[in-house]
Design a protein around this nucleic acid. Structure first.
Lengths: 339, 339
DNA sequence: ATGAAAGCGCTAACAA
DNA sequence: TTGTTAGCGCTTTCAT
């Protein structure tokens, strides 16, 4: 590979100076149309490709934004990433990805890595392990915008985008009650992440409103996956007073619930089953699974918009924006439909 | 935010020069243990954070590698991204993500964006639209490694990682034949992407081997999603000589097939159904879906390994590595099981 | 083992 | 409108 062309080469070829070339390339006001065109033409002719690293060093802006998530393999996060990248790209930003794999240690490293890469900001969702959040404070110490989405934390004051999880829990429970279910169980995670707690609160609230006493046996805390739903259901089926509906902490849990019920020759909605997250399979399994849409795409877009808004008024650090709270969407389907 | 500490500040504080600090920080051989420790201590004390942008400018390495995929929302790609990031991270690399959304135009922009960001290499899978591949050549012109995975292209000579798709198609068909199915249909995409063609070739090959004539009516070309499978199945069910098994171009197509069968009160394996991709729901739906595992995680890891290998011997451009071809894995499950 | 000094490619005052 | 000139923070010869 021949040595790469720089603005110096263009300047030399045109007998002008680098600053003029720079101005032409960046389309800065005070430049004559003729030289601008000449520069652009020569740039193309010489196969010039701007070096963003160099420009970042001087300007202090990389146009890269760090995205820190538990895992790109979790569909919800994949959708948020998709949406973030798609939207931010149109504003000239790229996405530097870091996965924590639900580890606090890795999360700390992630913050460091992204900061060292001089990202212009970080959009993050916490790992399940995260209790202490001081590593996130470092982002703000560097004066860079930090936006937290979905998995938030009380100790961290920061702009955030989330969904109304309590309402999600409420909606789900209310829906089951409306369908005539009375003994409603809930299989969820033992983790202390706020959103799961809030959903659970919504569940309790709906039951209380309906004047139904909360049966402790109906709350099962396990893993948030197919296995968790499966095992939890077996526990529930052993009860003298079996539930007539089960809420899964997410759609995978719900899948496990359906599987376990099936083994006992029970097909929803005989026992109603509902999940959270609207995974792309949920609509298509048989019976189709009732669930809550968490608006991952919308969430990505809102994060991006928030980031851009903060970047615009460049005294980011000071102002704490109001959290954006998206409304969960109930998707009633066959698995809860009593006709 | 106070001005950030640089190696200059550390040098001044310790009354040594920046070069010494740099050496200490980078753990370069010719440094006395005592000064190394002193530097490290002072660095910590002064809250020093290295600026990778600056070091990239001099060293010419960013330790960022560009990942260009159709969409992070497609689970296969999400898994590859997950795997890539996870593995490469342990070697000090970060991932800059670019999605083409199946658009050629966007793919070209992606290559430019990544190159301008001075990535150390690009790992890519082509968009469905991609016929001409000249934009990929630019990566190599800059002397940077380009690794193509899964969706490859005949015109592009480059290190690649793929799976044996013809064999995947063969395996699927052979499995159905072994289960006693005879009239095997195939619902796939009209797109000319190589992998789909190859799978189809495998299907034909297996039928030929079994001495079964290929019935043109049994090949349906539609969209590669649930809807495609659903519509395709309705077409197939109208045939006088109905198929007794249907292969779906991927697991979503298979989901659509099952859905359509269900509406006609047919439950697999009465008509056998099998897919490709082993989506994470496939194992858990009822009946569980037979499919092919495409080893997304493995593919990510192989790409990463290949990249590292090329980077090591730094005369990358010259050598074309042998393609890594992963073997597809048949996962026979209930949807095809004739007992 | 350490220091001095020249850049990497670009931006952004300040001058002209 | 264009040119001059410092850097940005770090790496890396070449000296010492």
């Amino acid at each position: 590979m021949a040595k790469k062309t720089t603005i110096y080469d263009i300047a030399k070829a045109l007998n002008i100076t680098v600053s003029t070339v720079s101005r032409a390339l960046n389309n800065i006001s005070t430049i004559s149309e003729s030289t601008r065109e000449a520069v652009l033409e020569m740039a193309k002719k010489m196969n010039y490709r701007p070096n963003k690293v160099a420009s970042s060093l001087t300007s202090g802006k990389t146009y890269i934004i760090g995205v820190l998530v538990p895992s790109a393999q979790i569909q919800f996060f994949a959708s948020v990433i998709h949406s973030l990248e798609k939207y931010l790209k149109s504003f000239g930003y790229s996405i530097l990805l870091y996965q924590t794999n639900e580890s606090l240690e890795s999360e700390k490293n992630g913050i460091s890595t992204l900061l060292e890469a001089q990202v212009d900001g970080i959009i993050a969702s916490m790992s399940l392990e995260t209790a202490d959040v001081s590593h996130f404070e470092k982002v703000k110490e560097e004066g860079k915008p930090l936006i937290i989405f979905d998995r938030t934390h009380d100790d961290l004051q920061s702009p955030m985008v989330k969904i109304n999880d309590e309402h999600a829990g409420y909606l789900v429970t209310k829906h089951l009650l409306d369908q005539g279910y009375k003994r409603i169980a809930y299989i969820t995670t033992k983790h202390r992440i706020k959103i799961f707690k809030e959903r659970y609160n919504g569940y309790q609230k709906a039951l209380q409103e309906a004047g139904i006493a909360i049966n402790a046996d109906y709350s099962v805390f396990g893993e948030l996956n197919v296995e968790g739903g499966y095992l939890g259901t077996h526990t529930l089926l052993k009860l003298k007073d079996r539930p007539d509906a089960i809420i899964g902490g997410d759609d995978y849990v719900a899948l496990g619930i359906i599987k376990a019920l099936h083994e006992n020759n029970i097909v929803p909605p005989t026992i109603g089953v509902i999940g959270f997250a609207n995974q792309n399979f949920s609509e298509h399994i048989i019976p189709s699974l009732s669930t809550i849409d968490q608006q991952a795409m919308q969430m990505g877009k809102e994060c991006a918009k928030m980031f851009l808004k903060i970047i615009e008024r460049n005294h980011a650090e000071e102002l704490i924006l109001e959290p954006v709270v998206l409304e969960p969407l109930l998707l009633p389907r066959a698995s809860t439909k009593r006709s």
